[in-house]
């Protein structure tokens, strides 16, 4: 018996080890959402991100000169835009007052810097240099001047990991800014798409897509992208709508974490995708 086992081991040890390791990997896959694995990840990426941020800073210094030039130009353009928006804001405020609206929403912005990027076709994520000590919590939206980048997924003391929109794990309720039609936004591995959009919905190429107030993850209106193509499905009742995101996820460096997490009351009322997957 022992000899047979020994013979088998000698003949197939490479395959036996391979199978054992694959099975171990599958076990780890099933343990992803357990607190122990989450803590292990938080400690590991937190420690490594501290080193990464040093290298990232050094690399960025070389780019500062050209970036300063670009920022100065952008600053001037923004100044003109701000003046215009200020005028619109005053007008809007007056009109809202007249209608009896109570505008109480104030969104705290936490500035952050991207210290590393994990770019894969299915699970792109960013590491930011802000964490629990900066009041960052899982579930907070991450934005820049162009629009929504993603959602904070896990945090350590000084760092956090953001799942970008180009991540299969992230589905967000969005709406068409023009027609107000709501839909689910997801990343299919190739494109950002609105899925299961009824053919009767009023959506056209060029429409701006923003986050919907129905969303249990990001309930404030933030720009997401623009409709580029409607893939008309011959059979069935749904269309698939392709979206070009406003944000260039590859070049993103400076971001803001929006210091809001959707209210518990609302979360308890809804089937919250994010909460279910945490």
């Amino acid at each position: 018996m022992l000899r047979t086992v020994s013979k088998l081991w000698d003949s197939f040890k490479e395959y036996i080890i391979l199978i054992i390791l694959i099975l171990t990997g599958l076990v780890f896959l099933s343990l992803n959402y357990t607190p122990a694995v989450k803590n292990l990840k938080a400690v590991a990426f937190g420690s490594f991100a501290a080193v990464t941020s040093l290298v990232s800073d050094a690399v960025n210094i070389t780019k500062l000169k050209s970036e300063n030039e670009k920022l100065r130009r952008q600053n001037a353009e923004l100044m003109l835009q701000v003046n215009l928006l200020r005028y619109y804001g005053i007008t809007n405020h007056e009109l809202k007052d007249m209608l009896g609206y109570k505008d109480t929403v104030k969104y705290p912005l936490i500035p952050a810097h991207v210290v590393s990027k994990s770019l894969t076709a299915s699970q792109s994520s960013l590491t930011l240099n802000v964490g629990i000590s900066d009041s960052v919590k899982p579930g907070m939206p991450v934005v820049n001047g162009e629009g929504l980048i993603g959602i904070v997924h896990s945090v350590s003391e000084n760092y956090s990991i953001v799942r970008t929109l180009k991540n299969r794990d992230l589905n967000i309720t969005v709406k068409n800014e023009r027609s107000r039609a709501d839909a689910i936004l997801k990343w299919n591995g190739e494109d950002l798409v609105l899925v299961d959009v009824p053919k009767t919905y009023d959506i056209e190429p060029g429409d701006r897509i923003i986050t919907s107030d129905l969303s249990s993850i990001v309930a404030v209106p933030i720009g997401v992208g623009v409709v580029t193509q409607l893939s008309k499905v011959e059979t069935g009742i749904f269309n698939e709508v392709k979206i070009k995101p406003f944000v260039d996820f590859i070049r993103v460096e400076h971001v803001f974490v929006l210091g809001i997490v959707e209210s518990k009351q609302k979360n308890n009322l809804e089937l919250n995708f994010y909460r279910m997957n945490r």
Partner: peptide, 24 residues
Amino acid sequence: TVLGFIFGFLFDIIAGILLGSGMI
């Protein structure tokens, strides 16, 4: 095989992505 498993494990936990996919 063993080195691939170790690299995958380290990459998965440090990058904060789905643990197990890189390992396999």
